[in-house]
Each structure stands twice: as structure tokens, then as C-alpha cells.
Design a protein around this nucleic acid. Structure first.
Lengths: 133, 133
DNA sequence: TAAGGTACTCACCTTTTGGTAAGTTATAGG
DNA sequence: CCTATAACTTACCAAAAGGTGAGTACCTTA
């Protein structure tokens, strides 16, 4: 019996490799990385991170870009990402208020990995969804 | 005022780039890529895709690897991924049943993007979660 | 005086997600 | 004949995620 499921046409060394702790493709149930992964792969998390990958933006700008997000969810998502040290919040004490959001260095690092994923989803979405009877 | 939020130390050409349709970092609300993204970034989707990135596996093996998953969720997640053409299901008509799951070529492509993301989450999880007062 | 702009929070309710436990199938082994 | 096995499905319930609409603060402009 085969021990691998890779398409024969793909050389084995094209396989991306998991780190030691995930050697057999498992996250232990209580693993902190599951929490982090949940934050960044949350419904709106990806979208906000992506929007911010284009540069610093204000609250209202983010709202517009993440089309369909509610104010509640925007606030919640930004708070989580800020706590995680991925997003930087700069508030100015002016009236009306002005708050600028941007990616931290860590957030930038992450968005570099998210962009290819999202691009892939964007490019493959139609084929994936149409190929279903 | 600054038009970019990138750390000054990072040259602009290191920025990953979004495709045309996402030029301003937005998914239109009804965009099919949002659906696809929801599937693959679902709580268990990433984990299953990741487990399968190590090769063909049986139902019970997957259950063990995605620690904490319920049978219901495993079935549901696999069904979605199969419908999306990311996972291949090979059932043998024997008793007791034997079913092998593997990644399709498309699924393999995707897992190549997921692995760096998950590796990053794994490596940064402790720092992220500890840096919170 | 009144309305508008910005960045929120809050309370309430609905929808979605996920877990639990039981049932199913057909055969092989004791 | 009873039990175990693998890969499920189903019904029911709890929890979490998410939406809605209102409220708030303070100043500016009409």
C-alpha cells in the first residue's frame, strides 16, 4: 500500500514541512497555536489583516473595505488583533475622534503569509464552487 | 501624513501583492472567495488539510490526529473539503468499512500555503499569548 | 438651535457552530 | 449468539459568533 498521497508528478522535495512539534500533522488539543490560529483565521480577522496590508487606515476606512462587517465585529476584531500584537492603534485626542490602525512588524510578517493564501482563494474560488453538482 | 504603515526597515518591494480584484484589500461582500476562505479557515478545516499534507490517511487516523474533533465535525469537514475538490475520498466496500482520504492536486497546492502559516502560528503562539497583560 | 461627523459601547436577539450520545451496517471471531 | 469493528448518520441541546439598533461624547458647520 502507498504510504503517501502526493500526486506522482510532484517531486517529494516540493513538500512544505511542518515544524517538529507538529511532526505528525497534529496540534495537541490545548495547543496555544490553536488559539492564535483561531484569531487570525476568524471570519473578519483575515479581511482586516489583509486590508491593513495595504497601509495605515482609519476606522471608517476599514469599515468600508471589509464590506459587510458590523461596527461591533470591527471593534472586536481589531481589539483581538491589537492584543495579539499584530495591529497598532494610534488614537488622536481630537474632535471628531481620529484613530489610525496599522500592522506591527509581526502583523506585517503574518500578512506576508496570508496574502498568497487569499490570492489563491480568490483565483480558485469560481472553479471550486462551480465544480459542485 | 504617511501613506504607508510599513516599518521603515522593510523595503517596499518585500510587500506581497494582492490580485487586481482585491486591489484595495477588500473582498466584495458576496465574493465567492469569501466562501472558499471560510471553508479552509474553518476551525477544523486547517487541521484536517494539515494532517492530510502528511499523506493519505484513514478516517480513524484523522480523528486521532485532529485531537479533540468530534465524529460529526470530522464528517462535516471532510464532506465540505471533498465537495470543494480539495480532498479525495476512496471507500472500499469491505466490512468493516475502510475509507482512505488524501489531498487532491488542488488540495496539495493549498496545503503548501497553509503550512507556512501554521508553522508561523506555532512558532509565535507563546510570544503572542504571553505578551498580553 | 439643530444637525452632522467619528469612533466607539451596550443590550438584546438570531443564527451558526459544535458537542453528546445513540443508532446503523454487515461481517468476522469467540 | 454475542460482541467487536469502522465509518458513519441522526436528533437534540449548549455555546459561541454575529447582527441590529440605540446611545454617547464633543466639537464644527449651517
Amino acid at each position: 500500500m502507498e504510504t503517501t498521497a502526493w500526486p506522482a508528478s510532484l517531486p517529494a522535495d516540493l513538500r512544505a514541512h511542518l515544524p517538529e512539534g507538529l511532526a505528525d500533522g497534529v496540534f495537541p488539543a490545548g495547543c496555544p497555536s490553536r488559539t492564535v490560529l483561531d484569531h487570525i483565521t476568524s471570519k473578519w480577522g483575515v479581511l482586516i489583516l489583509l486590508a491593513l496590508s495595504e497601509g495605515e487606515q482609519r476606522w471608517s476606512e476599514l469599515r468600508r473595505r471589509a464590506e459587510g462587517i458590523s461596527e461591533k465585529m470591527l471593534a472586536q476584531t481589531l481589539k483581538t488583533l491589537e492584543r495579539d500584537g499584530l495591529v497598532l492603534r494610534k488614537a488622536q485626542a481630537v474632535i471628531p475622534p481620529r484613530v489610525d490602525y496599522s500592522l506591527t512588524e509581526r502583523g506585517y510578517e503574518l500578512s506576508g503569509l496570508l496574502v498568497p493564501l487569499v490570492t489563491w482563494a480568490y483565483n480558485n474560488a469560481d472553479e471550486i464552487l462551480n465544480g459542485q453538482r
